[in-house]
Amino acid sequence: MKILTCPVNGPRPVSEFAYGGEVRPMPDGATCTDREWADYVFNRSGVPGVKIEWWYHIASGTWFYAERDTVADRVIRTWLPA
């Protein structure tokens, strides 16, 4: 089983975590077009590669970022939101 390193709780099996998807900047709803907003809501950059993702350590309630290669399933680094 994959090991993921929580920035607070250290290396743990991935079953202790919930996946939160890719980190995506939200456009300003007050100024963006409908199409831009729909793109934010629905579209994903599904292309394989290194992405920054949300992960959640369930037992401690810790959200953090992970930079992960979605082909090799290799976690490059993890860190807490500022």
Binding site: G20, Y56, G61, W63, P81, A82
Partner: peptide, 20 residues
Amino acid sequence: VYRELQRWNAQWNLEVGIVN
């Protein structure tokens, strides 16, 4: 819901404490 609220606040950094 608790999980998502925590995530929102990890981004918004409002001065709140959420307790489940």
